[in-house]
């Protein structure tokens, strides 16, 4: 039995926003969230009742994120933002905020979880997406590899490498509460 769309928004709104934040800068993330749910609402009556709604939403969110990046003429994978390079960019050792506008928008309010999103934003594209889909979207590696292209093994490795990079660049991951 299909639920009212309102329930879809309440149940998955937060997850979709985390996914959008992991893929985009704070301001763009909200645009992507809105576009995602508007598209989803349009297609919702035709969605098979057996579908995994959250995975479906995450897939739409990823497409919207790419659209937004393309529209603003930015590359989704800025090479200069590889963690090794970025880590030396700032006086605090956590790197310059997103040079390409991907994340760390200077105008963006620094929320309590701002740092971790900045660190996620500095991951190489495949790693960032693999982590996003695996840990925020709850998707199996089979589906992730279908989205990213490449083998299931490669998707699994991208997530593991991403997690390793994140630990190295996000101090909060090492010592709880010492992040700031």
């Amino acid at each position: 039995m299909k639920e009212p769309f309102e329930n879809v928004v309440t149940q998955h709104g937060a997850t979709v926003l985390r996914v959008c934040r992991a893929l985009l800068a704070l301001h763009d993330a909200e645009d992507a969230w809105s576009e995602t749910f508007l598209s989803a609402m349009r297609a919702y009556p035709g969605l098979p009742e057996t579908a995994n709604v959250e995975a479906w939403l995450v897939t739409i969110a990823r497409r919207k994120a790419i659209d937004l990046l393309r529209a603003s003429g930015r590359n989704p994978v800025p090479v200069e933002m590889l963690p090794e390079t970025a880590a030396e960019g700032g006086p605090d050792g956590r790197g310059a905020p997103g040079a390409s506008g991907l994340l760390g928008d200077p105008a963006a309010p620094g929320g309590p979880d701002g740092d971790v999103w900045e660190a996620v934003g500095r991951l190489p594209d495949k790693q960032r997406q693999a982590i996003t889909f695996r840990y925020l979207g709850g998707m199996p590696y089979e589906e992730i590899s279908a989205i990213l292209g490449g083998s299931v093994q490669a998707a699994r490795r991208a997530a593991a490498d991403g997690m390793k990079n994140l630990r190295r660049n996000y101090p909060g991951a090492r010592t709880k509460g010492a992040a700031r």
């Binding site: 985390r18 979880d113 971790v116 982590i131 840990y135 925020l136 909060g172 991951a173 090492r174």
Partner: peptide, 9 residues
Amino acid sequence: DVLSLLSAP
């Protein structure tokens, strides 16, 4: 730890 931050409310 990382995951709990990523999934923070």
